[in-house]
Amino acid sequence: MLPLFSLLLAFEAQTQESGDVGCVPSPTASAHVTATDLPEVLGNLQYNILKNTKMKCKHQPQVKELSWGVDLEKNFPKSLCQFDYIMAADVVYYHPFLEELLLTFHHLCNNEDEQTVAEIMRRRFSPAVVTNRPWEGFHFAGHEIKIIEATECYGAVVWPSALVLCHFLETNAKQYSLVDKSVIEIGAGTGLVSIVATLLGAHVTATDLPEVLGNLQYNILKNTKMKCKHQPQVKELSWGVDLEKNFPKSLCQFDYIMAADVVYYHPFLEELLLTFHHLCQDNTVILWAMRFRLDTKNQFMGRFQELFDLEVISNFPSLNIALYKAMRRGKKMT
Rank of each mutant, 00 (worst) to 15 (best):
E144C: 13
Y256S: 02
P3D: 14
T36L: 11
A128K: 14
L165A: 03
I186G: 02
P210R: 07
A162L: 01
K229N: 01
D84R: 13
S161G: 08
E112S: 12
Q46W: 03
F5H: 10
K235L: 10
M55Q: 12
T205N: 01
E136T: 13
F300C: 08
Q231E: 11
L178M: 11
K249A: 11
L319H: 09
T104D: 04
L66R: 02
Y93G: 05
Y324K: 02
S250R: 06
L163Q: 06
A173D: 13
Q16F: 10
D37W: 14
A156V: 03
N315Y: 06
V263Y: 00
F247M: 01
N52I: 02
T36I: 12
N75T: 12
A326Y: 10
V129D: 07
T15M: 10
W135N: 10
S314E: 15
E17M: 00
M333S: 11
L66M: 12
F292D: 15
K229R: 15
V130N: 04
F304P: 07
L66V: 02
I145A: 04
D295F: 03
G201D: 07
A89M: 03
I145P: 09
V262W: 02
R133V: 15
C228Q: 09
L98K: 05
L287Y: 02
W68L: 02
C280F: 01
L323M: 06
P27R: 03
P39Y: 09
K325W: 01
S318N: 13
D295I: 01
Q175I: 01
F138D: 06
T275Y: 02
S238V: 15
Q231V: 08
T205P: 03
V204C: 09
I86P: 08
S177L: 03
K225G: 00
E144H: 13
R329V: 02
G330V: 13
Q82R: 15
H203W: 10
E119S: 11
V262Y: 00
I148D: 12
P267C: 07
K58C: 07
V129W: 00
A13V: 12
K227H: 08
G189L: 06
